[in-house]
Structures are given as C-alpha cells and as structure tokens.
Design a protein around this nucleic acid. Structure first.
Length: 597
DNA sequence: GATCTCACG
DNA sequence: ACGTACGTGAGATCC
C-alpha cells in the first residue's frame, strides 16, 4: 500500500513543469538506485546528485508504517521514498509506475485532483483504493477536510512544518493513521457501500467530466454579450432620466437613497444596513413609478452580462470548452457543488436568461447533447422513506403530484383542482421538503399564518405517514445528534442542542430536509457511476459532461444517441429500487436549450 | 471580508 | 413574542 500526500497547487505546477523538462526516463521504480541519502536529479548531467544540506535531519525517518513506496509531490519535484529518500524530478514514467499500476494500491488525499492531473498527461489513475478526503467527508461532512488537519494531534516535533517537504513527510504516517480511523468509522456507520461503491468511484467520473468540459459557442455568446451591453446602456440612460440624476445603479445603498428618499417611494422592508431593494421589493413598487420597470430589467440584464456572458467567456479554453470544477466534499447534504464556472446555476426560469443555453452546444455537427432529469425525485424519496401509503399510491399511479396533493388537501376531485389550488399545494410540497413552518409558508404563498397552518394540517391529514416520519426524524436527531439518508449518508446537527430557539428551529428544518435532499444526491451519484460504466462497456462515444443535482447531461455522437439515451434512462431510473418508481424525462438536441424538455 | 443581490435545484 | 423556508456560487459595492 502506498500513501500519497501533496497540496493541490504544487501538483498543478508540477504537472505543468514536467512537460517542459527533459525527463528522467531511464529510471523506473524497480531500478531506482538505493542510497543512504537524498538524491537530487540534475538534468544537465543526467545524474542523481547527493545533497545533504537540507534534509539530513529526517534522514532516519522513523515511523513509516511499512517499507512500501511513498510518493510526495511538492513544487517541481516528485519525492519518492523507498526505504531511503530520493528526490527526483517529475517524470511521466515515475507517475505511471506510481498511479497506473494496479498491483500497487495507493491511498490518496483528493483523488479527483490526482486523476485530473494525470489525465492531462494521458495517464489514468488506476490504483486508488482509498481517498482520505472523501472518507472524512462521508464520515462527517461538516469537517473542512484539509490535509493539514491530519496533523492535528499528531507528534510532529521532529519536523519543521514550515518546510513543505518535511511537512509532507510528517503527513505520511498521519495519513496512515487517518485511513485506519476512517475505515473503521465508515464500517461502524454502515457507510461502506456509500463510500466504496459511490463516492470513491465518483471521484474518477467527476475527473473525466471536468476534463472533457462543455463546448461553448463563443462567437454567439460574444454577440449576445454585445446586445446585452446595448440594452444595459438604454436602461441606464432611462433610469438616470427618471431619477433626475446619475448614480451607481449597482449600489443598493445609492439606489435606496434614490427610490426611498429622492423619489419618496414607500418602503416595506429593510436590510441590516438600509433599504431593501431586491426584486421582490421592487415588484411591489412597480405601480408607484416607471423607474421600477427599468430597474428590474437593468438588474436582469446586468446579471446576464457580467455573471454569465462575460463570466463564462473568461473561462473558455483554446478548444472553446469550459471546464467546471466539482467540489465533492463540500455540501452538508451530499450534493455536489460546481465552481469556476458554476454550471449548476445557468438561467432557465426566465425566457431571456434561458437564451444563454443556446450557447452551450455539442462538440460538432455530428454530435448532440442528451439531457435527462429526474421527475420529482425528492418527493418520490419522501414517499419511499416515510412509507406514506397515499403518497406512494399517487406516484405509482403516475399522477401529477401537486394536483393530487391539492385534490386531497382541498377535498375536490383531481379534475376540479384550480391552478390556484395546485400552486398552493406545490408550495406546501416544497415546504415539507424544506422543513415546514406555517410562518414561512404563509410568507411564500401570501396567506395568513392561520391559513398556512390549515394547509399544513390538511396535508398531514392526507399524508399521515409523512407527518409521522418528520416527527420521528426530528426526535431521533435530537437523541443521536445526527440524521442519515437511507443510503447511510450522515449529517450532524449541533443546532438541535443549541439554547437559542431560532437555531433549534433551524436544526429541525435541517433534520427534515437533509435525509431527503441527501438521498436524492446519493441516488444520482450512484446513477453517474453506473452510467459511466455502462457507456464504457457499450463502447459508445457518449460521455457524461455535467450534473445539475437532479439532471445529467451527456455529449454523444449522433450515431450513438439511441443507445446512449437508453443507457442513461435505464441507469438513472434503476440506480436504486424503491416502493415508488423513479421517472426520468429525457431529450436531446444540438444545444442545451434544445436538449432540455 | 462582509453585505446585498440573484442565478440554479 | 419571536420570525427562517433547504442546498449552493458569483459579481458588485463598500468598509
């Protein structure tokens, strides 16, 4: 077993470097020279030079757990430890021997980053059997899971932690200890399947997705951006005219002054530092002044331009593709997060923003995008987890859940449900998933607290299993201090034992929401791993390129569309077996806009 | 760095 | 009486 520790940035630097350098290719791990000292490879002389000056203090490195291979990556060097220390320049052969040899299992901290770095040099991570970062996350998602944390509580007196190399060596035995501890914890928690069958393989799937990226129509997006700029200028001029002065529209402070002091519009809400000027507030002010329309439009266009048009264009690579970075050990619920760019919040709800999706395109004219999203996965999971018979029946019968809920709560036949009734029922369904309270529901659908409470009571009367489940979940969470999904994901909720009532209430909502949101995350993650496996086995060109919580996107050659669609739907709908069916809506097209139903 | 705003599921 | 819907990330402003 090998242990590999490193910091991300140095790794990136390392891998950039080694493409430019002359490599040490004649050495393989099996033929490394054995020596009593540290060797520094000199590419000019093609010799390993001995340098005793810096690291002689840790020459007799004491507590390495076994005599196997250790690898440390730092700055421009790859440090190998094989009974003795060697400091060698980065080298593809060495990396290959270290990471692509299935006989030599390695333990990593952040395997996705290693896999991605290797991919950039046409190598595939093949021998990772344990990822300490992911193990720590599965055991407890609230930890920051920094590699340096591994050193906490460890005897590091022999090392100078300000020295990157010594710090890395100090981390090796700490990794060994952490692995042992986490292995045990995962076993005790009943999280072995979640960890070994889902999270660990998912890291490699995510590395592939990040590596492939999503093709953008950069030319079209630039044109779009110019149009937005024109529109922004028009709105700005009109806003200045209506305000009677120029000011910074992007400053909530200045805007508040204009609206509520200069124009003396009524103010309904305040923030910590002044007037509230968010869209909800402005919406109420619409009847009072024509400037409001302009402001709302300005805000929307400004968002589209700076966050999306410009934000995305900054990040396209030479091939016109953007590569998001998925964070697999961040959220408290088990979801992924997506950054630089965030591809999980590309506009869709409003027509103007949705246009952006026309610039997310397939590789070429012989390719298409396939988009598949789960229909109501959270409510289906709620039905399954709570075992509520009425809700299970609704889903088994394939009905419209919001309509059925409205029908049952308001006591009318499904065909007599009005759009208002359905809307309110939908809000209640959301409320249940988020951790319901009459106050919040009242605010959301604009009824009195009492009426909201009536809706909730009606809901629980029709779905008594749900009420019982939510109650029991909170109770158990208060006893144990945590909640779990049916697949073993766990979240500790210290807020439940807080003295402040507000914090406690938050803890209760979290206790209600996390098993549902988390189970949905578990399901789609497993579906991703299985989909990738199935696509590979079928030898298709299709490849996963994006996940948006309940949605997966594949890019495929046109000739493979039918087969890829079938695999995607099959793997998503049957990733798990539940008392309710999981349904997936699937469509494809040349752009993300077209591929979304 | 905190705050506000707004994009998504 | 109190007063928050759950989970995220990014850009702009301002201290």
């Amino acid at each position: 077993m090998s242990y590999v520790g490193f910091d991300k940035k140095p790794l990136a630097a390392l891998l950039r470097e080694f493409e430019l350098k002359t490599f040490l290719t004649r050495l393989s791990l099996d033929t490394l020279p054995v020596d009593d000292s540290f060797g520094l490879f000199d590419e000019n002389t093609d010799q390993v030079q001995i340098d005793f000056t810096d690291y002689t203090k840790i020459d007799s490195f004491p507590q390495l757990p076994n005599k196997d291979l250790y690898v440390i990556l730092e700055e421009n060097n790859l440090y190998l430890y094989c009974e003795k220390f060697y400091i060698l320049p980065a080298n593809k052969e060495i990396l290959k021997a270290a990471f692509c040899n299935s006989n030599k299992k390695v333990v990593l901290y952040d395997s996705k980053t290693v896999a991605l770095a290797l991919k950039k040099h046409t190598l595939e991570l093949q021998n990772c059997v344990f990822d300490i970062m992911l193990a720590s996350y599965v055991a407890n998602p609230s930890g920051k899971a920094e590699m340096s944390d591994l050193l906490i509580g460890k005897d590091t007196s022999r090392f100078s932690l300000s020295d990157p190399l010594q710090k890395n060596f100090a981390i090796l035995p700490a990794m060994e200890a952490a692995k042992k501890e986490l292995e045990e914890k995962i076993k005790q928690n009943g999280q072995e399947s979640l960890y070994y069958d889902t999270e660990l393989p998912l890291a490699l799937t995510l590395a592939n997705m990040e590596y492939i990226g999503f093709k953008l129509d950069t030319k079209g997006l630039k044109t779009f951006s110019l149009h937005l700029e024109e529109r922004l200028q028009e709105r700005q001029a009109e806003i200045y005219r209506l305000a009677g002065q120029e000011f910074n529209i992007n400053s909530p402070k200045q805007l508040g002054e204009i609206l509520f002091t200069a124009l003396a519009l009524p103010s309904f809400r305040k923030t910590k530092s002044g007037f509230s000027t968010d869209a909800e507030t402005l919406e109420k002010l619409r009847p009072y002044h024509p400037i409001i329309n302009e402001l709302l439009d300005y805000r929307m266009v400004s968002k589209l331009k700076s966050t999306y048009a410009e934000g995305l264009l900054k990040l396209v690579d030479q091939n016109g593709r953007i590569h998001t970075s998925f964070k697999q050990a961040l959220t408290q619920t088990g979801r992924l997060s997506s950054t630089e760019p965030n591809l999980q919040n590309i506009p869709i709800r409003q027509a103007e923003g949705r246009e952006l999706r026309k610039f997310f395109i397939a590789e070429d004219e012989n390719s298409v995008l396939i988009d598949a999203d789960y229909s109501q996965i959270e409510l289906r999971l709620l039905a399954a987890i709570s075992r509520d018979t009425a809700m299970i029946e609704t889903f088994r019968n394939g009905g419209d859940i919001h309509r059925m809920t409205a029908s049952q709560v308001f006591g009318v036949p499904p065909e007599d449900v009005t759009s208002e009734m359905r809307k309110n029922a939908k809000a209640v369904n959301f409320g249940i998933v988020y951790g319901i309270s009459d106050f919040s529901l009242a605010g959301d659908i604009g009824v009195s607290k009492r009426e909201a409470a009536d809706y909730i009571n009606g809901y629980f009367k029709k779905y008594p299993g749900v009420e019982r489940y939510l109650k029991e979940t909170i109770e158990k969470a208060k006893e144990t201090g945590f909640v779990t999904t049916i697949y073993g994901r766990r979240r500790y909720i210290p807020e439940l034992s807080a003295t402040k009532k507000q914090l406690q209430a938050f803890g209760e909502r979290v206790a209600m929401n996390t098993p549902i949101q988390g189970a949905a995350a578990d399901v789609i993650k497993l579906a991703m791993v299985n989909t990738e496996k199935a696509l590979k086995r079928a030898n298709l060109s299709a490849r996963l390129i994006l996940q948006v919580h309940d949605e997966l996107i594949i890019e495929a050659k046109k000739e493979d569309v039918t087969a890829a669609c079938a695999i995607l739907k099959q793997e998503m709908e049957h990733a798990v077996t539940l008392p309710v069916p999981l349904e997936v809506d699937l469509s494809f097209g040349d752009t993300w806009y077209d591929a979304h139903s």
